[in-house]
Each structure stands twice: as structure tokens, then as C-alpha cells.
């Protein structure tokens, strides 16, 4: 099952397209990281998936084909927006009561014990909690709803390192215990490397790269070799990003393990951050990859739903 499926999805504000030609299929049971600089369209994509915004082009379905914003979608998705909006003058207990009343499922016991473990007093007004505590409260409310999909928009922007660790640990534990799928966005990749097993790279409103992290890392290599030969090989190889010195050049290429390494060159595996930076520095890089339609249609949703790249 694909927790989020978008086809040609686009959203326009006035004359600006915040998101354009977005075609992705995020499989269930993963932690999908939406990565990109500010203004890349991450929040727009998440808002569309959560049903808070309507598409200007294309469509988006969630939880195995249900329309975004439909009753089933609202029931199965717990969304925590950026800056964790909260009713400032309601106490934590009131927020629990509120969430319980607005949903079909709510695990009051879990929520209260979790807040107790985190040291968040139930009587205190939400506005008086620290940024980290508010984020944890918002997460508690979301997890207590027992959703199928947890969507987090830059959830850790306000958190210090310890709070970030605790936050992520809670999310991962929910995933381990209940099989919740997670889609989260961030503009800091380093903190996602430990947790993400599906990556969507976005830049300027378009998806540059999407796929399972393992597949992406296996299909990219860094070739190091003489600068003089770099141009020659650049035409034959699928080069994402090139860095040259006087004598030595580094080419980050998209290959499979079977592709031969040019003689005299060394091939190194690529880390996630390096890969992401290379693509983000080359906005046209995604266009060089095979089109999404064929790859996407080949991967039927009933299979793993995985795909190795998306572009255009």
C-alpha cells in the first residue's frame, strides 16, 4: 500500500507554483523524509496530502488510494504542522479531551502516561509550555489517535538536541509498536540519516529524487580520477554532479553495480548527505533521469510500491 500517492500534483498561489509536476508513491511501513531547502514545496506537498489544501493540478491520494481530506483519510492520518499549532489557553488535559472528542480512536491512558514520562504537567496551559514540550504534546496527541500515517512538517525546528532525540525516539517506538508509517520533512538532512529509509528530495517546487534510501545509495557512486579525462567520461556516464581540481576530478554518477569503472578511476560509495547535496546543487539533475511515468506505472501499488527515481 502506498501511504501517499501523487500524480502530476501541483499547487499554485497566485501566479507562483509552489509545487509542480509532483509524482511520487511513498510506500507504507517506511520513514519517508522530505528534504529540501526552504521554499522547496515540502510544506505544500504535506498540506495537500493532509487535505488542508486542494490541488491546482493533478491529484493526490492517501492510505491506499483514498482521496486526501476524505473522512477515511482524516481518520487514518495524524498531521502535525510546522510550529505545532496549539490552543494556547487550553491546558494539556483540555487538549487531550479536545482530541479525544474530535476523533474515533484515542488512547487516553497512553497519552497521559506519555506526558507523565516527559514531565509535562497536565494542568499547565499549552501556551506556557516550552517549545520542546509543545512539540512533544502535539506528537502525543497525534500518536494517541492511533493513526496509520504520521505526517510531521519540520517537527524538530524548535527542539534542542536532547529533545530532538526524545522526539525521534517516540516516533520510532510508535512505528515499531503499531506499524505507523511516517512522512516527515526537514531542511536539515543530517538528523534524518539515522531514521529515513525513503527519501524525497525537493527543490524549487519540484521533486528531484525519490526512492528507498538503500536503492538510491546503491545506484550512485563517486568516481575519482584524472581531471583531464573527466569530460570524456562525463558524456558517457550519467553524471549528477562534478567537482574538479587541477589534476583530480570527482564525478558523482548514477550507475548500477554492474557498470564498469573506467580504468584508472576509483569508485567510492556515496553517503546520503553527499548525495542530497549533489542533487540540490544541480537543479537540472533530475531531468537527466528516466521519466517518472514509465517507472511509476511499472511499479504496481500492490507490489512493494517502490521506485528508484522521479523527475520532471
Amino acid at each position: 500500500m502506498n501511504v501517499i500517492e501523487a500524480s502530476g500534483l501541483g499547487r499554485r498561489y497566485g501566479s507562483t507554483w509552489a509545487l509542480r509536476d509532483c509524482t511520487v508513491a511513498i510506500p507504507a511501513g517506511h520513514v519517508a523524509a522530505l528534504v529540501g531547502p526552504n521554499g522547496a514545496g515540502k510544506t505544500t506537498l504535506l498540506n495537500l496530502a493532509a487535505g488542508l489544501a486542494a490541488p491546482s493540478a493533478g491529484d493526490v491520494t492517501v492510505l491506499g488510494g483514498r482521496p486526501a481530506g476524505s473522512p477515511m483519510a482524516l481518520d487514518g492520518i495524524a498531521f502535525v504542522a510546522q510550529d505545532t499549532p496549539m490552543y494556547k489557553n487550553l491546558s494539556a488535559r483540555d487538549m487531550l479531551h479536545l482530541t479525544r472528542n474530535l476523533n474515533r480512536r484515542f488512547d487516553q491512558q497512553y497519552a497521559e502516561s506519555r506526558l507523565g514520562e516527559l514531565g509535562i504537567p497536565l494542568k499547565r496551559k499549552a501556551g506556557k509550555l516550552s517549545g520542546g514540550q509543545q512539540a512533544q504534546l502535539a506528537l502525543t496527541l497525534a500518536l494517541a489517535r492511533r493513526p496509520r500515517l504520521l505526517v510531521l512538517d519540520e517537527p524538530m525546528a524548535m527542539l534542542d538536541p536532547v529533545a530532538r532525540h526524545d522526539f525521534m525516539a517516540s516516533v520510532m517506538m510508535a512505528m515499531a509498536a503499531d506499524g505507523v508509517s511516517v512522512v516527515l520533512s526537514s531542511h536539515v538532512l543530517a538528523e534524518l540519516e539515522r531514521v529515513a529509509d525513503y527519501l524525497i528530495l525537493m527543490s524549487r517546487g519540484r521533486v528531484q529524487l525519490a526512492g528507498e534510501v538503500d536503492d538510491l545509495l546503491a545506484s550512485h557512486h563517486l568516481l575519482t580520477g584524472p581531471a583531464a579525462e573527466a569530460d570524456r567520461y562525463a558524456e558517457r556516464l550519467n553524471v549528477v554532479h562534478a567537482r574538479r581540481g587541477e589534476a583530480q576530478a570527482h564525478l558523482l554518477v548514477r550507475t548500477t553495480a554492474d557498470d564498469p569503472v573506467p580504468p584508472g578511476w576509483e569508485a567510492h560509495p556515496v553517503g546520503l548527505e553527499e548525495l542530497a547535496l549533489a542533487y540540490l546543487r544541480e537543479p537540472a539533475a533530475a531531468a537527466a533521469l528516466p521519466g517518472p511515468d514509465r517507472a511509476w506505472r511499472r511499479a504496481l501499488p500492490s507490489e512493494t510500491g517502490r521506485q528508484t527515481e522521479v523527475s520532471k
Binding site: A169, M173, V195
Partner: peptide
């Protein structure tokens, strides 16, 4: 246990 590792290290349970 997977749960304990995840709680301590905050990593993906799939890992």
C-alpha cells in the same frame, strides 16, 4: 528488543 534499541538510539526499527 527492537523496541528498546529504537527507544535508546532513535533509529528506524527497519534498520
Amino acid at each position: 528488543k527492537v523496541r528498546d534499541v529504537v527507544a535508546a538510539l532513535a533509529i528506524n526499527p527497519n534498520t
